[in-house]
Amino acid sequence: MASIHERLKNEPYSEYSFATRPTNATLFWRRCIIKQIYLFFALNLKIMRIVVGGHS
């Protein structure tokens, strides 16, 4: 039995079929430990700056 996902992604003109999907390369980088360690620190720093700068 095909999943809903399999059936809908090829259904023409359904909103679901128009959704942007990640490529295999994107999926790889999302789990690449080295890139994710960098992002962990970069995003934490960004959030910290937003929090601290948002109130006085």
């Binding site: 980088w29 999302r30 789990r31 994710q36 360690i37 962990f40």
Partner: peptide, 17 residues
């Protein structure tokens, strides 16, 4: 410049942290 939307493993670590 302050608006970010990133998906990945780092986000999970951050939520756990």
């Amino acid at each position: 410049n302050k608006t970010v939307g990133v998906i990945g493993l780092a986000g999970h670590w951050m939520k756990l942290f």
